[in-house]
Amino acid sequence: MIRMRDICVSFRSERQEKIFGVSRTPVLFNVSLSIPKGSCLGILGESGSGKSTLGRVICGLLKPDSGEYLLEGKNVYASRDGKKNLQNMLSVVFQDYTTSANPRFRIRDILAEGIRVKERKNGKKTDRSAEYCRLLELVGLDETFLDRFPHELSGGQLQRVCIARAVACEPEFILFDEAISSLDAHTQVQVMDLLKELKEKLGLTYVFITHDLTSVTYLCDEVMFLYKGRITEHIPVSRIAQTTDVYARKLLDSIIEFDEEYDDEMDVKESEESA
């Protein structure tokens, strides 16, 4: 479904080092990837790795300096048709659900944003009342939430509303930009279970940008490690323990070390309690 070839991105430098022209700082270096329809790719990297920049390219918000971005065979940045094709197929769920949902809107108004996109795309009106209920049911909520404001919902509930809005426009793929990192661990698992269910039920394709390796192994089919703007590894999640990439191994070892320390602490606590 999605194919990128040699994507390069640079930003204008604050310091003007050149006498003629503009000095630029490279951010992404020859990034290439492919995402089959119905799969989930996790893009994993630390802060400053370039993963958010890559996300902006995928969303159509940042034209790369060079390279090719194909969506079902159409070049996204080559023409208006390519950009329109992206807009019709893509939806996004952001990290900060508090700012991505208008605090003055009721939940029905937030959902209506996605429904209007679908109506423009399909050229026909929707039975709003039935659609509100259907969307809320999809994400594990009910119609009693419709007249509430965002501040009256928990973080997990509001992010479910944002997911429902993303699904409302009937996209073919959804990009999640650190979409669960602001939630507590228990709620993260609940939301990831919901995303798995929606992916299967609606036949969606996911791009999941995160810095959390645990969530990638839980949700994604493949994982791509991004370090200082370069892909260091692209591997199926089922084979992630077999990676020989230095950066990937570093992240994996840090997770294993944390788990071992936690297990040791729990063993000590249990022995103290039994004593």
Rank of each mutant, 00 (worst) to 15 (best):
L198S: 08
L198P: 05
K199R: 11
K199M: 14
K199P: 06
E200C: 07
E200N: 11
K201S: 04
K201E: 02
L202Q: 09
L202T: 03
G203M: 02
G203L: 02
G203S: 05
G203Y: 00
G203P: 02
G203Q: 13
L204D: 12
T205S: 14
T205V: 05
T205G: 07
T205P: 12
Y206C: 05
Y206N: 13
Y206W: 03
V207W: 02
V207M: 09
F208C: 10
F208Q: 12
F208E: 14
T210N: 08
T210Y: 01
H211K: 07
H211P: 14
H211Y: 13
D212F: 00
D212I: 00
L213R: 00
L213S: 00
L213D: 00
L213E: 00
T214K: 03
T214S: 06
T214H: 02
S215F: 00
S215R: 03
S215P: 11
S215T: 04
V216L: 02
V216D: 08
T217C: 07
Y218A: 07
Y218E: 11
Y218F: 11
L219F: 03
C220L: 04
C220N: 15
C220I: 08
C220K: 02
C220E: 11
D221E: 15
E222A: 13
V223Q: 10
V223A: 06
V223K: 02
V223F: 01
M224G: 12
M224K: 08
M224R: 11
M224L: 09
F225W: 09
L226E: 15
L226P: 01
Y227D: 15
Y227H: 13
Y227K: 14
Y227F: 13
Y227G: 06
Y227L: 14
K228Q: 13
R230M: 12
I231W: 08
I231P: 10
I231D: 07
T232D: 13
E233Y: 00
E233W: 01
E233N: 09
H234S: 09
H234N: 15
I235P: 11
I235F: 05
I235A: 12
P236N: 06
V237C: 03
S238I: 05
R239K: 07
I240S: 09
A241F: 09
A241I: 07
A241Q: 04
Q242V: 10
Q242F: 04
T243I: 15
T244E: 10
D245A: 13
D245K: 04
D245S: 14
V246W: 05
V246F: 07
Y247W: 08
Y247L: 12
Y247E: 03
Y247G: 11
Y247K: 06
A248R: 07
A248P: 08
A248Y: 11
A248K: 06
R249D: 12
R249I: 15
K250E: 14
K250C: 14
L252M: 15
L252D: 06
D253K: 13
D253W: 14
D253R: 02
